[in-house]
Nucleic acid binder design. Structure first.
Lengths: 233, 233
DNA sequence: CCGGGCAATTAAGTATGACGTTTACATCAC
DNA sequence: GTGATGTAAACGTCATACTTAATTGCCCGG
């Protein structure tokens, strides 16, 4: 078992974070450090360090004489990987997946266009490799193997864009792809059209055709959006 | 003077964060909590809380027996508003501005398209209002007033998209626009074409023409990218 | 009855010192 | 040279006392 959260404060964080993002403590709720210390059977010091982190995520605000108040949802740092993770395992997972897919549909095409200009030969090779891997695993219940290549493919695209902000979204995209596979149609093979598009994107990047890379990737993400509408909340 | 950083740990954070993001402590550098406590003349408790926050930003990693090590740049949480702010005031401000502008050029057109579908009448009114404000202040050294409308305009667009991830980028866009105005051409009036485009975007959103809104916004961001190339690092 | 100011109370913030725990590193035996 | 072992250095945790600031409510004057 992955014992995430290295120290005690980490464990407190991994307990409180999901509770807050799931809405167990609605915005406006006040938490007292003493009570938390009692509840988790740790010292106030540990609680305070966990609170500092939650505060840096804008999940809570700590004020003297009143306590630690849960902040309204709109103020949360929704780009923090841990917040994203917690929300993906929580109640409004559908909403979160939708948000992230929309973000993805905005970012990835532009990233692919940039990748067509900036990708190194190595990255181009990796792209075609993973596209081929997707082709090879696209039939016959090999969804897990397919997913690995799919994730890797998009990770290379984002990295090859040369934009650090894009590159840092790789984990988000991975989460979306993984979530889709594991929640959606575990028994249906991937859409052949999507597989073809990935191959074409790899080719467009390799030949430096930014326009084609962007357009093709837009088709991929549009497909993902359409898929999402099928099981809309 | 804005004494940001409410407690002692906040002040330590506001001192250490910029130092790290500016590269004063290159990746791999080790900081010791004791030394920091001495340097800032505060207790180790305070230092530890600041470190926890830096750790949650992935700026540093704290390991036993070795100390607090600065992590490589690629692992930083570059979406954390404070990290963005620090980097914008630091050495590689140009790089950062560039990254953010690219991100903007990916996100805003899609957001505008969504806004055309989801914007409330109130938001439509605000859009036209600010577009008009931009027109009114686009001539004769009123750059500050113009900037206010510009920022507000884009903030409404991102909020009206209905996507929380987009909405949370409003501050980033504001920072880019502000930075551009204050560093670029303080004495040149805004590009008339850009002003017109904003008016047209407001109109497209009002009439629900998603395609036009997206296309026009893409022109705006393309203009911003082009501007950036003029004073490229 | 209302309003302003003063004081009490409360919960977070800080300081300190002690101890626990992990682990890099050097030393020693084989 | 390799592996086991020991040691010390740094972070991690705890308990406690004290400080600070803000809320609350009381009290008094208008």
């Amino acid at each position: 078992m992955e014992n995430e959260g290295k120290g005690l404060h980490g464990r407190v964080l991994e307990a409180l974070g999901p509770e807050i993002t799931a809405g167990d403590h609605p915005p406006g709720t006040v938490l007292r450090t003493d009570e938390l210390a009692q509840r988790f059977d740790v010292s106030r010091t540990v609680i305070r360090e966990a609170i500092r982190v939650l505060e840096s995520m804008q999940l809570v605000a700590s004020r003297r004489r009143v306590g630690v108040t849960v902040r309204p949802t709109e103020e949360w740092n929704v780009y923090d990987p841990r917040v994203i993770g917690w929300r993906l395992t929580g109640r409004d997972r559908p909403r979160q997946l939708r948000s992230l897919t929309v973000l993805r549909s905005a970012v990835e095409p532009v990233a692919a266009g940039l990748a067509a200009r900036h990708a190194t030969p190595t990255q181009c090779a990796e792209l075609t490799e993973h596209a081929m891997g997707m082709v090879a695993t696209s039939r016959g219940q090999q969804l897990d193997a397919y997913l690995v290549h799919d994730v890797a493919f998009h990770r290379v695209i984002l990295a090859a864009s040369g934009n650090e902000m894009f590159a840092r979204l790789a984990d988000v995209v991975a989460a979306v792809l993984t979530g889709r596979t594991h929640h959606h149609v575990m028994f249906t093979d991937p859409d052949p059209a999507a597989v073809t598009l990935h191959v074409q994107v790899a080719e467009a990047v390799r030949t430096g055709d930014a326009g084609a890379a962007e357009r093709l990737t837009r088709e991929i993400t549009a497909g993902a959006m359409a898929e999402l509408d099928v099981l809309a909340p």
